[in-house]
Write a protein that binds this DNA or RNA. Sequence first.
DNA 1: AAGGAAAGAGAATGAACGTTCTTTGACGCG
DNA 2: CGCGTCAAAGAACGTTCATTCTCTTTCCTT
Lengths: 224, 224
Amino acid sequence: MSRATTAPGPGRRPSGDGDGRRALLLDAAEKIFNARGIQAVGMDRLRSASGLPLKRIYELFPGKDAVVVATLRRRHTRMMADIGAHVDAAGSPRERVLSLFDWFHEWFETPEFRGCPWMNAYGELGPTNPAIAAEVYHHQREFRALLTSVPRSAGCSEAVVGAVYLLAEGAVAAAAVQHSPSPAAEARAAVAALLAADAPASGAAVPGTAVPGAAASTAPPAGV
Amino acid sequence: MSRATTAPGPGRRPSGDGDGRRALLLDAAEKIFNARGIQAVGMDRLRSASGLPLKRIYELFPGKDAVVVATLRRRHTRMMADIGAHVDAAGSPRERVLSLFDWFHEWFETPEFRGCPWMNAYGELGPTNPAIAAEVYHHQREFRALLTSVPRSAGCSEAVVGAVYLLAEGAVAAAAVQHSPSPAAEARAAVAALLAADAPASGAAVPGTAVPGAAASTAPPAGV
DNA sequence: AAGGAAAGAGAATGAACGTTCTTTGACGCG
DNA sequence: CGCGTCAAAGAACGTTCATTCTCTTTCCTT
């Protein structure tokens, strides 16, 4: 719904162009939804936090639901890329697997951490909002694919592959309520124990290139 | 109208006494909050589902928040007892640990399963409602104590003890979004792998009474 | 410099919610 | 038989929210 009708060159754009405004809004929405939940946040708060008039917000998105979905999607893309980059900075296949939990530890230590944004949105709006439920499903499927690809390409058994994902998911839930990063360390210790028992993981020579990286670093957010 | 004068006791109490009314309300609230979230459910729906007039509801509870907390608390008590009974029906220490995940598998298979009610409430209302946040914290602490007590009294290492809890928490989150009980089976397989690598677990004879409150006695928690 | 389109700020609107109050009707007791 | 008490049902009240509309100002174009 862009108004390309009479908007010539870069004349006057106090709040930036469409993309800039979109980023302003999503930055504000991500922060506020994370801190206070979704239904507890009114559009007026999004307006004051983003500096955008309501009129612009409703030009960018058809409604609040779309803002929520876009916020989740943008954060998903960023998170996947972050994890991918973190894993790619590790050396051996074993270290790549363990580095996942270092990433989670760092996340849990940030003061804004308040649990998994997707699980929070799912618990709050999943039953009544199919678009949000679908977005959460999409996130979890890709997140799971990323987390399982690391131990799988390290040659781990399927039991260990599944455990890495479930331990990560459990650590997020535990850390959220406990307000402590220690579940990440516990999950890491559990994975270390599993890897020690899983012969191929520690010594096997699996091509260490970033198999999952392709899914995270360059994939466009389009589609689905 | 349809008010048969069924007064089975002192005076006339069409809807039962205080405890009966409380149970009526909590039954309805538990079901509806689980299916639709909390903020999406109005007091009017609680009234129609429970059959209690609003006046009685507000006599039983000072407000909606108290209904939510009471619902979570009652369900917590029931869940803890259910898990304890299920574990106690198992035989060897190893089977007791694995039976935890059979319990979860059964839970995930029920059609009403929609994730962890406490995590859902925490994501939705934790930031704005300290009473609910405290109730969730209380639940998670006791839930964790129960789940860790089973592998601990089976002689498992602390890494395995922590993994059992985190795998359970992760399985709940995964099963909720996937609408599938398979995460319970995956978690069970991971625990079986851990137990196989954990020497004392399979053979050691540890007195296997359920819910041994004396938790941390042997090994210190795996710090950072 | 005048005209006009678009921008920002915020009021208006209509619906939903939590909580309280009023009305209506039935029962027990004198 | 009439009166007081209490229960149920639902209207009422004040607030909040998502969304739309209005009014005033700004700044480009001619």
